[in-house]
Amino acid sequence: MKTVFVLGCNGQDGTLMCKSLLEKKLKVIGLTRKSTKDLSNHVKIGIRGEVEIIHGDINNFKTILNLIEKYRPNVIYNLAAQSSVGKSFSEPIETIETIVSGTINILEACKQLSFDGSLFFAGSSEIFGNTEKPADINYKQNPLNPYSIGKQSSFNLVKMYRESNNINCVTGVLCNHESQLRSDEFVTQKIISGALKCSLNKSHKLELGNIDVARDWGWAAEYVEAMQRIANTEKPTDYVICTGKLNKLKTFIKIAFNKLDLNWENHINSNKNLYRKTDIKQNFGDPTRLKNDLDWEAKIHLEEIIEKLIEHKIKEY
């Protein structure tokens, strides 16, 4: 039986990755920070107790080295990091440390151990900044926040170790992807929760920043399948994981409120005090290479994503 490591096993992507791997009858070992003993996401999707959980810090090199040496996994997915762009402005040191230190620790441990498995690192389309056209893997990079600066450094480290040390490591550059496991610090969940509150209280108002920004939104459960295809290719190659569809946040809001028979304009305040000085106006990817090479493409798009988020949130309530 193949053994797979999932680092950051309790986050959105880590939890969904664990579920997908378990369904494929693989042995899954999950790493989560010692301070993070809450496995609520595993409970939500019904996998509590099915993953072998190890509490450890990805920023500790010896921890990573010892774990890889002990278990010798076939595949390692590094999905661990502080992943909120907004939070990265208030916690830049922690954000960059969790991304960059984690990446270099894994790569260097694998180098020293002559690891012959494959490594997947979760990247972010935020490294491109504003995209004038759909971004492929060679699109110019212009990170505009601490989170994307950390992801850009990780991307370059992975490429360097692959080319210099012949390590089977890749980055999947992920555009925005959502699920019921996102916390309310993410604007999409804030909108869904806010819309439901407005349906219960017609006088409720929701304060948001710039609602004219546009993103490429996908469904996270689909994206973990793309990650696995990328990790298991014979020739290690970086890919952009995306839908290729660009939508404004205003469109997201309108669809969500329409689903609940509400007029969004009666409930949304766009507060300029909440605008970020370096906010990305639009960011979307080009899925062509992933489709041509690995026959993967997103099937779930914005309206269905929003329907799923509302359905899950109602169940929670």
Rank of each mutant, 00 (worst) to 15 (best):
W219S: 06
N41T: 13
L144P: 00
N105A: 11
S148F: 04
S164A: 15
Q12A: 05
L274T: 02
E69K: 15
N145S: 10
V43G: 01
N168P: 00
H55C: 06
S35I: 14
G285Y: 04
Q180S: 14
I137H: 02
V224G: 02
Y275N: 12
A109I: 06
L67K: 05
D212S: 14
T63V: 03
R72K: 15
N263F: 03
S40T: 12
R276P: 00
T103R: 08
D38I: 10
N292S: 11
L181G: 03
K159Q: 14
V158I: 13
G117A: 08
H204S: 13
E222H: 08
K140A: 13
D279G: 13
F128E: 00
K62E: 15
I54G: 03
K313P: 03
L249M: 12
L196W: 02
P146C: 04
G209N: 09
K140S: 13
Q82F: 08
I68R: 07
K37M: 11
A231K: 07
G150S: 05
W296D: 04
A226I: 10
R215L: 10
E185Q: 07
S124R: 02
N201M: 07
R48Y: 13
Q228C: 05
E185W: 02
D216R: 04
L26S: 03
F115H: 12
T278V: 00
E52G: 00
T95P: 07
G172H: 09
T237N: 09
T95E: 09
P134A: 06
E50G: 00
S199G: 04
G49A: 03
I306E: 09
R182I: 14
D295H: 14
K190H: 12
S124E: 05
L113T: 04
N269M: 08
R48E: 15
A231Q: 08
I314E: 12
A214G: 09
I104N: 05
C169A: 15
T63N: 13
V51L: 03
N142I: 00
Y223P: 00
E50T: 05
T243A: 05
G30L: 10
Y139S: 03
T63Q: 07
N105H: 08
T237Q: 12
I64H: 05
T288G: 00
D286W: 03
I96C: 12
S179T: 11
P287S: 07
K299C: 06
N10A: 09
N176E: 05
T288L: 09
Q12F: 00
N292P: 00
M1S: 10
K197P: 03
Y275D: 13
I137C: 05
F5K: 09
Q82H: 07
N271Q: 02
F115E: 11
N130V: 03
R182E: 06
F155Y: 15
